[in-house]
Design a protein around this nucleic acid. Structure first.
Length: 635
DNA sequence: GCCGTTTTCGGCCCGACTGTTTTCAGTCG
């Protein structure tokens, strides 16, 4: 059995190997595109692979690639991939991970006898690398510097950790003269659960050319000297790239109170700051190899802001399709704007002073191409260009309740009233107190008698406070066999039950499906909390049959949670999309343990928007009456 | 290797930066 990730990895490896062998770039590109298509599927590829026509129905997968996917799913291997591996030394793929080295250069190295990273280092040291074509002292120095980052190139970090770093850069640039707008773009703006690099777009006030050039230079300089930068990769007039120390960005970031999270993240923190003292003015010493993230800057005139923001937001595949659509309409689209196509002239239109058809706002550019404005979170080339109706996706402002929160009774650090006051401050009409159940002993889970007293305390607090309803609830453990951690008589006393898996997260898919189905179909359960139990970049969680879960959730009127903590975001985007299509009800909860956890809501909402969720399908947007009626229906 | 509101064959997005070059190839997003 192969997961979607396995299939995508195999296809991507084939693409890389073909590049190294110098094969047709469109052919390797097709493999690469297919890999991303598989990665973005919410359906299990193994199931689809039983029927070839279902595979070829996926855009980017034709008959040949369908055969290879079916071969991998049924035999566990692809013969063509094995053949490719025998032709290319394995170390070359590692060399290609070095930032700035692509297939053409690595191929030249291979021809010169360099086949792995140690060989490359040796060729740098003995000077033989200089003998390669187009390889001078500067290029070698750059490779030497980049080698330190080879291991972490391609590594990603959490959305909730990248966003504060983007804020640091944006705040730094926003105050500069001549700057009209600063906008983080890229995967951050699309709300992906992990971020590869941070993209910042700066729009300059439209003035005379000389003034704008001076302002651009000042912005570029300011960008490349932000404290915490460990390497300047490129610095031009309109475009810069740097690597920023992740350790230096830890200032605002605290380990999550969730003990399992705290334990795992503590490791990262200590390894991050271990080399050269704590954060602060580390400067551009470079090359220490500590955790770092690439930050890219693009500077453009404000008149191009819309098209530039579209270009810089991506995704790459979305952009490619959009540009193809432009060509079909006899236009050409770039970050400079949408222009009439003129194939006879080689010079780009913006350099000839051609007036764009649209460029100032995203709405204008989309409209000129015949689309409604597409939310950034939906720009993943997952069918968004086939939609013609306005989007109207859920927004943070739509959220009116929080239905999963902890207090000092278990592992939170707020009292019932403090929690309720904070929720009220955020404009919510309802907050549910859902402390851990007895089996979560590490989180100080409540034994039945403590829960009974806790319910009384919650009722008392609810009588005391005005302007918000406090619900008595529990985040009850779903035990390994699917049974719940309290007896039904006790659960029936609660206003709301969130059932979540916390242990036995390595179960096989069939067992996990059975376990979660039991919780979903339990008559007293309202919400299935963080369904797979994954921790992003830490552990995969279980892989239940989602289609089965969604069908059962629909039938039993059980909501499925998007846990908004940036370490979880579970359900994940593609699951949300499938759940929305299946008609499921979704909950978006912050799983609050402290005040600042309420701020994670934006990540949960972004994940919801990536699944094309509209407000009405989310319980947290419902008015008091509607929400409470839904809760009571299970009592 | 995929795909089709001009095509079932002949295309396949667009521009910036770098380092090496006497005009451009490679890489990246």
């Amino acid at each position: 059995m192969s997961s979607n990730q396995d299939v995508a990895a195999a296809l991507e490896e084939m693409a890389r190997l073909m590049e190294l062998l110098g094969e047709d770039s469109f052919r390797s590109g097709a493999h690469s595109r297919a890999a991303r298509a598989v990665e973005g599927l919410s359906d299990d590829i193994t199931a689809l692979a039983r029927d070839k026509s279902k595979l070829t129905a996926i855009e980017g997968i034709g008959p040949k690639l369908a055969d290879k996917i079916m071969e991998l799913c049924s035999t566990g291997a692809i013969k063509d991939l094995i053949d490719l591996r025998t032709k290319v030394p394995a170390g070359l793929l590692e060399i290609m991970q070095v930032p700035g080295l692509g297939s053409k250069t690595v191929r030249l190295m291979w021809q010169a006898g360099i086949t792995d990273i140690p060989g490359l280092k040796k060729a740098i040291d003995d000077g033989s690398l200089l003998n390669l074509p187009r390889m001078g002292a500067k290029a070698v120095a750059k490779i030497k510097e980049s080698l330190a980052f080879a291991a972490q190139a391609g590594q990603r970090t959490w959305l909730g950790k990248a966003a504060p770093i983007a804020d640091i850069f944006a705040a730094h640039l926003r105050q500069l003269p001549g700057v009209e707008r600063v906008e983080p773009a890229g995967s951050l703006r699309r709300g992906r659960d992990t971020i590869g690099d941070i993209d910042i777009l700066v729009a300059l006030k439209d003035q005379d050319t000389a003034t704008m050039a001076a302002h651009a230079a000042a912005v570029a300089k300011a960008f490349c000297t932000v404290p915490g930068i460990v390497q300047v990769i490129a610095q031009g007039e309109g475009k810069c790239s740097v690597r920023y120390s992740l350790a230096a960005g830890f200032g605002r970031w605290k380990p999550a109170p969730d003990p399992e999270v705290a334990a795992s993240t503590a490791v990262i923190e200590s390894s991050g700051s271990g080399s050269g003292g704590a954060s602060g003015g580390s400067g551009a010493s470079g090359g220490s190899g500590g955790p770092s993230i690439q930050v890219d800057l693009r500077i453009l005139p404000n008149a191009s802001f819309g098209s530039a923001l579209m270009y810089f937001t991506g995704s790459k595949e979305h952009n490619v399709h959009l540009r193809e659509r432009a060509l079909a309409m006899n236009y050409t689209l770039s970050e400079w704007g949408l222009f009439p196509l003129n194939k006879k002239i080689d010079i780009p239109p913006q350099q000839r002073g051609v007036k764009p058809i649209a460029s100032a706002t995203e709405e204008q550019v989309f409209a000129a191409l015949g689309f409604p404005w597409i939310p950034p979170e939906a720009r993943e080339d997952r069918g968004e260009l086939d939609e013609s109706a306005p989007w109207n996706l859920i927004e943070v402002a739509d959220i009116k309740s929080e239905l999963h929160a902890h207090t000092t009774a278990s592992d939170g650090n707020l009292t019932i009233l403090e929690l309720a006051e904070e929720a009220k401050k955020r404009g919510f009409h309802t907050i549910a107190v859902t402390d851990h159940s007895q089996s979560s002993s590490i989180a100080n889970g409540l034994k039945p008698d403590r829960l009974r007293r806790h319910i009384d305390a919650i009722r008392a607090a609810n009588d005391q406070i005005k302007g918000i309803t406090i619900l008595a609830g529990s985040e009850v453990d779903i035990l390994a066999d699917g049974s719940l951690d309290y007896k039904d008589e006790l659960l029936a006393l609660l206003d709301i039950v969130v059932a979540s898996p916390h242990a036995a997260l390595s179960q096989d898919p069939a067992t996990a499906t059975k376990r979660l189905l039991k919780a979903i179909t339990h008559p007293l359960v309202h919400i299935l909390g963080h369904p797979t139990g994954r921790l992003i970049l830490r552990r995969p969680g279980t892989s239940p049959d989602m289609a089965e879960l969604f069908a059962a959730a629909n039938e039993h009127n059980t909501a499925l949670e998007i846990n908004a903590h940036w370490m979880r975001l579970d359900l994940r985007d593609i699951h949300v999309r499938a759940a929305v299509q299946a008609g499921c009800t979704i909950a978006i909860n912050c799983d609050d343990h402290e005040r600042s956890d309420f701020d994670n809501l934006r990540y949960g909402v972004m994940t919801a928007r990536r699944g094309w969720l509209r407000a009405e399908q989310c319980v947290n947007t419902w008015a008091v009456k509607e929400l409470h009626a839904w809760l009571k229906a299970k009592r």
